[in-house]
Amino acid sequence: MTGEDAVRLRPPRNAVDQRAVTWWRTRLLMTTAVPVAVLAVLGALIGPARSWLLLAAGAVAVLGLGCTAFLPAWWFRVHRWEVTDEAVYVRTGALWQEWRIAPMSRIQTVDTVRGPLEQTFRLATVTVTTASSKGAIRIEGLDHELAAELAERLTLITRATPGDAT
């Protein structure tokens, strides 16, 4: 194939919901708070190791707050998804970007998940399961109503698509 004949993979068209940034920030803050609290409590209780434990708690807090401030906005810029009549396309990752494509004929199940934190932000995750050894494709950070519509649309398309999903 020559350069002119090569097919280029374009980025999926859709961004996740803007509320996903706050959802990701909240998850990172919660993930940071637990080890910081444990280290701080241990530092308060264990006199000989107090300075080291409190220093570790401070380092984890600074690192966690830095990640919380920077990563969700970056993730929002790189996470993309799209559904066509032929396939589901997802691009995720910040440093190591992953592009996943699931042809409609390979889709086995479509699920929506709304954890407690996602429910708070009115978000949902759509999981598309295929026979791939790589595992399911997840589209996180969708408006919960859009996720329900997307799951219904995928169900209709896959039902009408010939193939045995293996």
Results as ranks from 00 to 15, higher is better:
residue 68 T to P: 09
residue 93 G to L: 03
residue 96 W to N: 10
residue 131 A to D: 06
residue 134 K to S: 15
residue 90 V to E: 00
residue 114 R to D: 02
residue 124 A to T: 06
residue 135 G to L: 05
residue 100 R to D: 04
residue 81 W to F: 03
residue 93 G to K: 03
residue 140 E to A: 12
residue 93 G to E: 06
residue 74 W to L: 14
residue 138 R to W: 01
residue 120 T to G: 14
residue 96 W to K: 12
residue 96 W to C: 03
residue 134 K to H: 12
residue 151 A to E: 05
residue 72 P to D: 08
residue 58 G to E: 04
residue 110 V to N: 02
residue 110 V to H: 01
residue 51 S to I: 11
residue 80 R to Y: 07
residue 81 W to Y: 01
residue 100 R to Y: 04
residue 92 T to L: 03
residue 62 V to H: 09
residue 97 Q to W: 04
residue 114 R to T: 13
residue 121 F to W: 15
residue 78 V to Q: 13
residue 132 S to Y: 06
residue 71 L to W: 03
residue 103 P to E: 12
residue 73 A to Q: 11
residue 122 R to E: 10
residue 146 L to A: 13
residue 135 G to N: 06
residue 82 E to V: 05
residue 151 A to Q: 14
residue 105 S to Y: 11
residue 70 F to P: 09
residue 111 D to W: 02
residue 109 T to S: 15
residue 95 L to T: 05
residue 131 A to P: 12
residue 106 R to A: 02
residue 61 A to F: 15
residue 100 R to S: 12
residue 109 T to F: 08
residue 54 L to E: 10
residue 74 W to N: 04
residue 142 L to C: 04
residue 66 G to I: 15
residue 96 W to Y: 07
residue 135 G to V: 11
residue 108 Q to T: 11
residue 67 C to T: 09
residue 145 E to T: 12
residue 81 W to C: 00
residue 127 T to M: 03
residue 110 V to C: 02
residue 105 S to F: 11
residue 123 L to T: 03
residue 145 E to H: 14
residue 96 W to T: 12
residue 152 E to L: 09
residue 57 A to S: 06
residue 92 T to E: 08
residue 90 V to R: 00
residue 66 G to K: 12
residue 101 I to M: 08
residue 75 W to L: 15
residue 76 F to K: 07
residue 138 R to D: 13
residue 63 L to P: 07
residue 81 W to K: 00
residue 112 T to S: 12
residue 87 A to M: 10
residue 121 F to G: 03
residue 114 R to C: 07
residue 115 G to P: 13
residue 72 P to Q: 08
residue 149 E to L: 13
residue 79 H to V: 02
residue 62 V to N: 07
residue 56 A to L: 15
residue 62 V to C: 12
residue 137 I to V: 12
residue 143 D to K: 10
residue 116 P to Q: 07
residue 80 R to A: 01
residue 112 T to Q: 13
residue 146 L to F: 06
residue 83 V to L: 14
residue 105 S to A: 13
residue 83 V to Q: 01
residue 90 V to D: 00
residue 130 T to M: 10
residue 128 V to Q: 01
residue 144 H to W: 11
residue 135 G to D: 05
residue 80 R to T: 05
residue 139 I to D: 00
residue 82 E to W: 03
residue 131 A to L: 10
residue 82 E to M: 09
residue 142 L to D: 01
residue 137 I to Y: 00
residue 153 R to K: 14
residue 80 R to L: 10
residue 85 D to W: 05
residue 119 Q to M: 10
residue 68 T to V: 11
residue 59 A to P: 13
residue 108 Q to K: 08
residue 99 W to K: 04
residue 114 R to I: 02
residue 88 V to S: 00
residue 138 R to E: 15
residue 141 G to E: 01
residue 103 P to C: 06
residue 53 L to Q: 14
residue 92 T to V: 04
residue 75 W to E: 09
residue 79 H to M: 09
residue 142 L to E: 01
residue 101 I to G: 02
residue 142 L to V: 01
residue 89 Y to P: 02
residue 111 D to T: 14
residue 149 E to C: 04
residue 153 R to W: 02
residue 54 L to I: 14
residue 57 A to G: 14
residue 73 A to D: 11
residue 86 E to N: 04
residue 50 R to Q: 15
residue 72 P to E: 12
residue 106 R to Q: 13
